[in-house]
Simulated scan of single mutants.
Amino acid sequence: MPPFISFLHTSPVHVASFARLLDAQAPGKVAEHHVDEALLAAAQQAGADEAVLDRRVNEAMTAAAASGAAVVVCTCSTIGAAAERTPTGGRFTAMRVDRAMADAAVLAGPRILMVAALASTLAPTTRLLRESAAALGRPLQLQSLLAEAAWTHFQHGDHAAYINAIASSVTAATPTADVIVLAQASMAPAAQALQALGVPVLSSPSLGVARALAQLQAR
């Protein structure tokens, strides 16, 4: 079997969207999808830096590679750092889906508006953007915006209302930024709704899949 990618999601809604993205970028490429909703719930309760959470995420990443995946991509920004820290023993590459987005954002900056719908995503994505800025030698002027009203819509399965709430929050904030970052993979459709702002809007799924395919090619 040729090398393949395995995705670790914390919501089943991501399975179809990432399958579509992969098929668009690499038609016919085989992939696996694993869903563990409890990981996000644990991160919200315990904090994304807890050792117990790290162990659970590492175990989930390793399990996602069990059938031979060469690259395992965590699509949840809240637990992305723990996913990247997974000890792989060289058996597979452990990735977080939003690192490619962060790198692109700091190259487009320096003024970045980071938008999240879930409070537990703010700190991990802030650290990620600072890491990317340091690694690429770029200045960073970071603002954050929490679209507090949006997440309830996501939990209730009303994705149209979720995206509308995110777009409304960003528009109301009248951002003065060089680039807007949508911190969660589920927020990606809001990029189209924000085109009228005339500011580049980045989301993680497409950029993350492209980087995963590059990693797959490199192995």
Rank of each mutant, 00 (worst) to 15 (best):
M1C: 14
F4G: 03
F18V: 02
L21C: 09
L21E: 12
Q25W: 03
G28D: 00
A31I: 08
H33R: 06
H34N: 10
H34I: 15
L40D: 05
A46P: 07
D49N: 12
E50G: 13
D54W: 07
A60K: 04
A66E: 12
A70W: 12
V72I: 05
V72H: 02
S77K: 11
I79W: 09
G80W: 09
A83C: 04
T88R: 07
A94C: 10
M95L: 13
M95K: 02
A104C: 01
A104V: 09
V106M: 03
G109H: 05
P110A: 00
P110L: 02
A116F: 06
A119T: 14
A123W: 09
P124V: 03
T126Q: 10
R127Y: 07
L128C: 09
L129R: 05
R130D: 08
E131H: 13
E131M: 10
A134G: 01
A135W: 11
L136D: 02
G137F: 09
G137W: 06
Q141I: 14
L142Q: 07
L146Q: 03
E148H: 08
W151S: 02
T152P: 01
H156I: 03
D158E: 06
H159T: 14
A160S: 09
A160V: 15
S168G: 10
S169C: 13
T174R: 15
T174M: 11
A177R: 08
I180F: 07
L182K: 00
A183Q: 01
S186A: 15
A188D: 11
A193F: 04
V199T: 14
V201E: 00
L202Q: 04
S203N: 10
P205Y: 02
G208F: 08
V209I: 13
V209Q: 04
V209G: 00
A210I: 12
R211A: 15
